[in-house]
Design a protein around this nucleic acid. Structure first.
Length: 555
RNA sequence: GGCCCGUUGGUCAAGUGGCCUAAGACUCCGGCCUCUCACGCCGGCAACACGAGUUCGAAUCUCGUACGGGUCACCA
């Protein structure tokens, strides 16, 4: 039994039996049609907007079916691992409403723990499981140890590079260790030489393997012929092997991942077959792109700050806005649906993988901004104030201090033209804009300027401010009637229409008179409803601002 | 370079052989509403990558070309 000897030399330590693993992780008992999906990031501590998108689609796929969405940590490459990466990953995901049913789950802000019966969900803790299946492969002659060094491999690549149009990689006559006699292999192992384990591919490049991608439809590719590495020198599996073992044992039904994996499907299919597993369904989602120099390219972690979801938080885009935007990318029908169902949770949207676009979409910040304005417009003043305050505490401490000194004030300000309005204002797209939006309400931030309309002279402005008397008791109609009356008294038209009909007869119109008052109170040419603003200020502060403006003109 | 995927207005996209003189949304430009702005409403600009073929008929099917993207690691 030479193969058994090889297997024993390769794996001297006791390992679970594959059959036992099968019974330990039985088929899931789920309702008909329920799907099992997963999100499987490596813990680099950096959540890419594209990863969020993928995770989101995975979760969405499951929600309507009563299935399971789990999180698996792919930490098989210790070089890329980052301290605290898992924790920050979970936080980022949770902030965007991605909450797995199983796997490594956050239980509170400082603590994570595994949930579910198909664990461990962290690959570094599954070493024995991979090795058990790897050993079984060796026993069947479907895998073999390879002793080629990095140098040998790179000269192999050089030779292939010069050989022209041949398939690159470890196969055929290039696969030197493939046909190493078993005795020799055992000797190498026993002498302590480092080795990797490779799949002994029985693929044929002339044959084609058909499969169905859930978003792209039928695809045909040449069979895999590469003797891919499945166990690295340190005994840890490569992505490909871990994918086969984990997604089989965790009973994943749909592997939804980014497009870059499409090319390795033939390998994955061969791995599933070699292990005796039934392959899952695949869906490959196109990557998010960014336009540059007229072309498009993948959003890059290094070059594009907006590739990181943390960027959106810093800018103050509500997580909800990002998700709503992502929904637009997931299905073009979403916007219509949303218009018809403004308050329905997006999980209820009838979503299908098939409807997803097979081409990569440019990430459109302008569109996000529009969506975000809509999301923020739907918030009450109190809610918006709360969100903005939370944002400020993290990203604008000075603002946070000012807000804290005026408890409840921000909510009053933001309620203007918002709470109860049929057409709430849509001029804030990010929490980061709130500071500028409300600055004139706070004496600490107010810039005393007096932007007057083009035709308005200083004398006329002074006359208006001298004559104007603010009374906090007026309702909106009375308030405006007072301004109109003042306008007429000072030689301004009572309405813009009247002015337009006979411009020569007036100094201007009510709008100009209001503009002067607005400028005096707020320092700005445009604002939300001035009457409401003045109410929030209170009589004393309004009069104070008016007086200051007069002094300014007369100084 | 081999293999694979993709290509409808500036952007996201509907469209699965006749309903397409090609929908909708964002942007941009006009106008209306209006005390300003924002909103809202009305209108406008703007596209089937190219070439062959199949067909009575093609954005839609086939082939080729071009362009874009992915992949070819002991990274995922």
């Amino acid at each position: 039994m030479p193969k058994a000897k090889l297997a024993a030399a390769l794996f001297p330590n006791p390992l679970p039996a594959p059959e036992d693993l099968e019974t330990r992780y039985p088929s899931r008992n789920l309702p008909e049609g329920a799907r099992v999906t997963r999100f499987a990031p490596s813990p680099t501590g950096f959540l890419h907007i594209g990863s969020l998108y993928t995770a989101f689609v995975n979760q969405l796929t499951v929600r309507a079916t009563g299935g399971v969405f789990f999180l698996r940590i792919e930490d098989t490459d210790k070089k890329r691992e980052v301290e605290g990466g898992v924790q920050s990953l979970l936080e980022s995901l949770a902030a965007f409403g991605i909450v797995p049913d199983e796997g490594t789950v956050r239980t509170d802000v400082s603590h994570t723990e595994e949930q579910g019966a198909y664990g461990p969900y962290t690959q570094s803790a599954r070493r024995d499981i991979y090795q058990a299946f790897a050993k079984a492969l060796v026993l069947q002659g479907l895998a073999y140890p390879c002793f080629c060094t990095e140098d040998e491999l790179s000269t192999l690549r050089d030779e292939q590079g010069q050989a022209g149009a041949i398939q690159k990689g470890y196969w055929g006559k290039w696969a030197r260790c493939r046909d190493l006699p078993v005795d020799e292999a055992i000797q190498h192992v026993q002498s302590g030489e480092p080795w990797v384990l490779r799949l002994r591919s029985n693929g044929n490049a002339e044959k084609r393997v058909p499969f169905t991608d859930e978003v792209r439809g039928k695809i045909e590719m040449p069979e895999n012929i590469l003797d891919a590495v499945i166990l690295k020198t340190d005994g840890v599996p490569t992505y490909h092997f871990a994918h086969a073992v984990d997604d089989h044992l965790m009973r994943t039904t749909h592997v939804i991942r980014s497009e870059e994996w499409l090319a390795s499907v033939p390998l994955h299919l061969e791995l599933f077959r070699a292990c005796g597993f039934k392959p899952p369904k695949y869906a490959h989602i196109s990557a998010m792109m960014k336009s540059e120099d007229g072309g498009k390219r993948k959003l890059s972690k290094r070059k594009d700050p907006e590739a990181a979801v943390s960027w959106f938080a810093r800018q103050g885009y509500p997580a909800d806005a990002v998700l709503e935007y992502l929904m637009c990318l997931i299905s073009s029908q979403f916007e219509d649906w949303r218009k018809a169902n403004p308050a329905v949770p997006r999980e209820s949207f009838p979503f299908t993988l098939k409807k997803m676009s097979a081409s990569g979409a440019l990430f459109d910040l302008v569109k996000l901004t529009d969506v975000s304005k809509g999301v923020i417009a739907a918030m009450s003043g109190t809610v918006l104030a709360g969100q903005a305050t939370v944002w400020a505490r993290e990203f604008d401490p000075q603002l946070a201090d000012i807000l804290a000194a005026h408890d409840g004030y921000l909510a009053q300000i933001l309620a203007i033209d918002r709470d109860g309005a049929k057409k709430p204002r849509k001029d804030i797209s990010r929490y980061g804009e709130v500071r500028e939006y409300v600055s004139y309400f706070f004496d600490e931030l107010f810039k005393s300027e007096l932007p007057l309309p083009d035709e308005m002279t200083q004398e006329n402005a002074a006359a208006i401010l001298d004559a104007y008397e603010y009374s906090a008791g007026d309702d909106k109609d009375a308030w405006f009637a007072r301004i109109r009356e003042l306008a007429v008294r000072l030689g301004f038209a009572a309405s813009p229409k009247e002015y337009k009909e006979n411009p020569g007869a007036f100094k201007g119109h009510v709008g100009d008179v209001s503009a002067v008052i607005r400028a005096a109170v707020t320092g700005r040419p445009n604002t939300p409803d001035l009457w409401a603003i003045c109410r929030v200020f209170g009589e004393e502060r309004v009069r104070g601002r008016l007086r200051n403006a007069i002094d300014r003109i007369k100084k």
